[in-house]
Amino acid sequence: MTMNFLTNRRVLRVAAFIVVAIVVAVAPLVSSPYVNFQLTMIAVFALAILGLNIVMGYAGQISLGQSAFVGLGAYITAFGVSNHWPIVLTFILVCFISAVVGLVVALPALRLRGHALAIVTLALPIIAIPLARRFPEVTGGSNGMTVNWLDAPAWTGLAVDQWRYYVIVIITAVFFLFAHNLVTGRVGRAFAIVRDNEAVATSMGISSYRYKVIAFALSALYGGVAGFLYLGAVQFTSPETLNFVIAINLVAALVIGGTGSITGSLIGGAFYVVVPILAGQVNSSQTAIFSGAALLIVLLIVPGGLVTVPSVIRQSMKKRSGRPKPGGADGADVTSAAQAV
Rank of each mutant, 00 (worst) to 15 (best):
G188Q: 00
G260K: 13
G269H: 10
E240H: 07
Y222L: 13
T77M: 00
I289Y: 08
A179T: 15
L39K: 08
I301G: 01
A252T: 11
S311G: 05
L231H: 08
G65Y: 05
L221D: 02
H180R: 04
F228N: 04
P239V: 08
T90A: 07
I267D: 00
V200K: 00
R9G: 04
A279P: 06
I87Y: 03
I126G: 04
L112V: 14
I42E: 01
V183Y: 02
S336K: 14
Q162R: 15
R133I: 09
V334N: 10
A27L: 15
L6W: 12
V194L: 00
G260V: 10
E137G: 11
L278A: 14
A288I: 02
A288W: 01
I297Y: 01
M41H: 10
S285K: 06
T7H: 06
L242R: 05
V14M: 14
G260P: 10
G258V: 08
L242S: 07
L107N: 00
V94Y: 04
G57F: 08
D330W: 09
A329V: 11
T202L: 09
A337Q: 10
L6A: 09
V298R: 10
I126E: 12
L250E: 04
G140V: 00
V274H: 00
L158E: 14
V169S: 12
A179N: 03
A252Q: 01
V11G: 03
I97C: 11
H84A: 11
A68S: 13
Q286A: 14
F5M: 08
A215Q: 06
R210P: 03
R164V: 15
I289G: 05
A253S: 13
G268C: 07
L39N: 11
N53Q: 02
V167D: 04
G185E: 01
A220G: 06
L221W: 07
P276E: 09
G80C: 02
V174M: 12
I22M: 15
A116F: 04
G280L: 01
L300E: 10
T139L: 06
A173Q: 00
M317L: 05
F178A: 14
V255H: 03
G327H: 07
A215F: 08
I126D: 07
S142H: 07
V234S: 05
A16P: 08
T7L: 11
W85P: 06
S82E: 13
T7C: 06
Q315K: 15
S203R: 02
A123H: 08
A220K: 07
P86S: 13
L12Y: 06
A46R: 06
Y165I: 13
A293L: 13
I127T: 12
A190R: 13
Y209N: 06
I256S: 04
V105Y: 10
A270T: 10
V55Y: 09
G264P: 01
E198D: 14
S336H: 11
L229I: 08
G327S: 11
S31Q: 13
V169Y: 04
A270W: 11
G157S: 12
A27M: 15
P136I: 11
P326Y: 02
